[in-house]
Amino acid sequence: MLKALALVASAALFAVPAVAQEQCGGDFGAFVRGLSDEAVQKGFGSAEARQFFGGVRQDPKVLRADRAQGIFQMPFIDFSRRLISQNRVQAGERNAQKYAEVFDRISQDYGISRGILLAFWAFETDYGAVQGDFNTVNALVTLAHDCRRPDLFRPQVFAAMELFRRGDLDPARTTGAWAGEIGMVQVLPSEIVEKGVDGDGDGHITLKTSAPDALMTGARVLAELGWRKGEPWMQEVDMPSDFAWEKTGLETWMPASDWAALGVTPRSGKLLGPDLSSAILLPQGKDGPAFLVYPNFNVLFEWNKSFTYVTTAAYFATRLEGAPVYDAGNPSPALSDDEMKALQQKLSARGHDVGAVDGILGAMTRQAVQKEQARLGLPADAWPTRDLLNGL
Score class of each variant (00 low, 15 high):
L2F: 05
K3Y: 14
L7T: 14
V8E: 14
S10V: 13
V16T: 15
A18S: 11
G26D: 01
F28H: 12
A30W: 01
V32D: 11
R33S: 08
L35T: 15
E38V: 13
V40S: 12
G45W: 04
E48Y: 07
A49F: 14
Q51T: 13
V56Q: 13
Q58I: 09
D59E: 11
D59W: 14
L63H: 10
R64W: 09
G70S: 13
F72M: 09
Q73H: 01
I77S: 14
D78L: 13
R82H: 09
I84D: 03
S85Q: 01
Q86D: 11
R88N: 09
E93Q: 15
E93P: 03
E101M: 06
D104N: 11
I106R: 05
I106A: 05
S107R: 13
Q108S: 13
S113Y: 04
G115I: 08
I116M: 12
L117M: 06
L118Y: 08
A119I: 04
W121Y: 15
E124K: 03
L140F: 14
V141L: 05
T142V: 10
C147E: 11
D151M: 05
V157R: 06
V157A: 04
V157N: 07
L163P: 03
F164V: 06
M184N: 12
V185L: 15
E191T: 13
E194W: 09
K195V: 09
D198K: 02
D202P: 04
G203M: 09
I205V: 15
L207K: 01
D213A: 00
D213F: 00
D213C: 01
L215W: 03
R220K: 12
K229R: 15
E231I: 02
M234H: 00
P240F: 05
E246C: 01
K247G: 02
K247Q: 12
E251L: 07
S257F: 06
S257A: 11
G263D: 10
V264K: 05
V264W: 02
R267Q: 12
K270D: 15
G273R: 05
G273M: 00
P274K: 02
I280T: 08
G285C: 03
D287C: 04
G288Y: 04
P289A: 07
A290I: 04
N296E: 03
F297D: 02
F297Q: 10
V299F: 10
L300F: 06
F301I: 13
N304D: 06
A313C: 09
A314R: 11
Y315I: 00
A317Q: 06
L320G: 01
L320R: 01
E321V: 10
E321W: 05
A323N: 06
G329F: 05
N330G: 08
A334Q: 11
L335Q: 01
K341R: 15
K346H: 08
K346P: 03
A349D: 14
D353V: 13
A356P: 03
G359K: 11
I360F: 11
G362R: 11
G362I: 05
T365Q: 07
Q367A: 13
K371T: 07
E372S: 12
Q373T: 06
A374Y: 01
T385H: 05
